[in-house]
């Protein structure tokens, strides 16, 4: 069970949170002007990142707020969490072996 740093509440256990998919995908508006392919890409195409992945989480059983997180998909560890209004932080450099 991971601990997740809610930007509003602090460190809380994973069951309090709900995953919300890839972050930084704005809903195109007005949607009517998009081609079928562009709309399909918005609806269904997502990255399958190995490494730092920016994604949305919601502290459902806490403050209820959505926030973004940078998570390493190979280790499952959170590299950073940040508010929706903030740009994604740069992933920390790989620790020197």
């Amino acid at each position: 069970m991971l601990l997740i740093q809610c930007p509003y509440c602090g460190e809380r256990p994973e069951p309090e949170f709900v995953y919300g998919g890839q972050a930084h995908i704005a809903r195109p508006q007005p949607s009517a002007e998009l081609s079928d392919q562009e709309w399909t890409n918005f609806l269904y195409r997502r990255n399958n990142t190995r490494g730092a992945h920016a994604e949305r989480w919601r502290h459902t059983h806490g403050c209820g707020r959505f926030f973004n997180a940078l998570r390493d998909t190979t280790t499952d560890h959170f590299l950073a969490t940040y508010k929706l209004s903030e740009p994604p932080p740069r992933p920390p450099a790989e620790s020197a072996e």
């Binding site: 601990l3 740093q5 602090g10 460190e11 280790t75 560890h77 959170f78 590299l79 950073a80 920390p92 620790s95």
Partner: peptide, 12 residues
């Protein structure tokens, strides 16, 4: 030190 898992310093 805040909490159980401050960022970084893993893979030591």
């Amino acid at each position: 030190r805040e909490g159980v898992c401050p960022a970084g310093a893993l893979g030591r």
